[in-house]
């Protein structure tokens, strides 16, 4: 053991280095989140946290499980590709508890013109009217059933009763 005869100071240095490394690793294990680096240079658990956000829009598939009649009317008409919540707004609460959460009816005076008020900016093949001239103030649903808006279509306009909330 001649080699290590005068090496006491080296062992002390090595010991100090080992302690330092251990100390830093300990501190690091407390500071770095557990899932950091699971998928990359970020906290893997963050993905699940973002995914845990509650949904406000139930999705038309959910609506159609109960409102089969409306789904049928709509599928046959011009609004076939317009999803329920495009007009009725987010209804996840109503879907979760249909009896106590009343979704109300959208106000057609605001709703219809959002899409159908004539504007040179809209695509030319999209149906547009100058609402003032077109109806003279008569509510849209007097003639058009919102779920199947073509006049004389399967459902009578009266079935879309109401207009304002």
């Amino acid at each position: 053991m001649r080699l290590f005869r005068d090496a006491g100071h080296l062992f002390r240095l090595a010991g100090l280095f080992a302690f330092g490394t251990l100390f830093i690793l300990t501190i690091r294990s407390f500071l770095v989140p557990r899932t950091f680096g699971e998928y990359g240079h970020y906290r893997g658990a963050a993905i699940a946290e973002v995914a845990a956000h509650p949904a406000r829009f139930a999705g038309h598939q959910t609506c159609e499980t109960c409102h089969t009649d409306v789904a049928q009317t709509k599928a046959a008409g011009k609004h076939a590709q317009v999803n329920c919540e495009a007009c009725h707004g987010p209804q996840a609460k109503h879907a979760d508890d249909p009896s106590s959460v009343d979704p109300g009816k959208p106000d057609t005076a605001v709703l219809c013109v959002r899409c159908h008020e004539a504007s040179a900016a809209r695509p030319k093949d999209f149906p547009q009217v100058n609402a003032g001239d077109h109806s003279g103030g008569v509510p849209c649903q007097t003639c058009h059933q919102p779920h199947s808006p073509a006049i004389g279509s399967a459902s009578a306009p009266a079935s879309a009763a109401g207009g304002t909330k």
Partner: peptide, 23 residues
């Protein structure tokens, strides 16, 4: 935007796509 990650991971589409009337 999270691309509605909470929706697309559950088989739904995003809120903007759900609400878009013209596709």
């Amino acid at each position: 935007c999270t691309l509605c990650y909470h929706r697309i991971t559950k088989g739904l589409t995003t809120a903007c796509c759900e609400a878009c009337p013209t596709g």
